[in-house]
């Protein structure tokens, strides 16, 4: 294998890891956005909050409990916070003009960020040595493949498969699909939207934290500024993949991850982020419903 090809493949692998992390965060986001059409601006700051909790739990219980277990606990906590936010800040205004719950979400994001800052400070905190990701690597010809580069996409893939199964083969999934299409009629035939919707927020928060834990482990630090940036990236990935599609979120994340890696390697790290957005805009211009989305006919 020549050097150029090795370098290229290295970037692809990096891109896939990073992309798979985006996928995780996006899947969490996709739950609320896909089902309720609500741009949950609080998603990022919620998962950052949850990831901070995971961090603290691990510091306190270091070594005694498997960190992933603690991450799950933190995820559940964040999920519960998500449900509370839904009940207090979104549900009362669900029927208003679209922008109203969105602005409320902005407000919640700000509150969460402030709480995080008050508890954990404004500086970035190191996430090294928290052993979420497997160590080690192996050689594939000239290519050095880190174990974590396989682990992360595998976890992401597993999550998508599980979520897709839940959506298509469980009662909860049936209810969710009905609410996604027509929440008023769903209510009428007895689908308990006031039970299902909070659960969707719970899942969104939980999956977000799982993604957040992966993200911070991969990059080695956590900071309160990640919140809104994360929300926007998740939103972008979901729009690219298609609103309401988990596979869309998965592949959308991968595409963005690889694109960013390529841009970073061949154009310059400065334009990494920008490239991702350019791709999304271009794709959406030609296919407004995203890669896997389906057209929803507007009823007049």
């Amino acid at each position: 294998m020549n050097e150029g090809l090795t370098y290229f493949l290295q970037q692809v692998i990096n891109g896939l890891s990073c992309g798979a992390i985006y996928s995780m965060i996006a899947i969490g986001y996709s739950m609320v956005y896909g089902v309720l059409g609500l741009i949950n601006f609080a998603h990022g700051d919620l998962y950052v909050f949850g990831t901070f909790i995971a961090y603290s739990l691990i510091i306190v219980l270091s070594g005694m409990v498997n960190p992933w277990l603690l991450a799950i606990v933190a995820g559940c906590l964040a999920g519960c916070v998500g449900m509370v936010i839904e009940r207090l800040a979104y549900r009362p205004i669900r029927k208003a003009n679209r922008m109203v719950p969105m602005i409320s979400a902005f407000g919640c994001a700000a509150v969460l960020k402030t709480i995080s800052q008050a508890v954990w400070g404004p500086e970035a905190i190191s996430f090294e040595s928290l052993s979420f990701l497997p160590e080690g690597s192996f050689m594939l010809g000239n290519l050095q493949v880190y174990n974590r580069a396989l682990f992360i996409p595998a976890v992401s893939l597993a999550v998508v498969i599980i979520m897709q199964y839940i959506l298509n083969h469980t009662k909860f999934g049936l209810g969710t699909r009905c609410i996604m299409q027509d929440s008023a009629t769903s209510n009428l035939i007895g689908v308990p939207s006031d039970t299902i919707i909070p659960l969707i927020y719970f899942l969104g928060g939980f999956l977000g934290v799982m993604g957040g834990v992966l993200y911070c482990s991969y990059y080695g630090y956590i900071s309160i500024d990640m919140g809104m940036l994360g929300t926007i990236k998740a939103w972008a990935v979901v729009m690219l993949g298609g609103k309401g599609s988990f596979w869309g979120a998965f592949f959308g994340g991968l595409v963005i991850g690889v694109a960013e890696a390529m841009a970073g390697a061949y154009i310059g790290t400065a334009y990494r982020d920008a490239v991702g957005y350019i791709i999304i805009v271009v794709v959406l211009m030609f296919r407004p419903t995203g890669m896997f989305g389906h057209k929803k006919v507007e009823k007049v």
């Binding site: 009662k171 049936l174 209810g175 699909r177 009905c178 299409q181 027509d182 008023a184 009629t185 769903s186 009428l188 035939i189 007895g190 689908v191 389906h294 006919v297």
Partner: peptide, 23 residues
């Protein structure tokens, strides 16, 4: 209730619609 305008779940299958009715 059978709502005005039918309001079937257009993106779901006929089978799933019936299943939803028995939720």
């Amino acid at each position: 209730q059978v709502p005005e305008g039918r309001m079937v779940f257009a993106d779901s299958t006929v089978y799933d619609n019936l299943l939803a009715g028995a939720y």
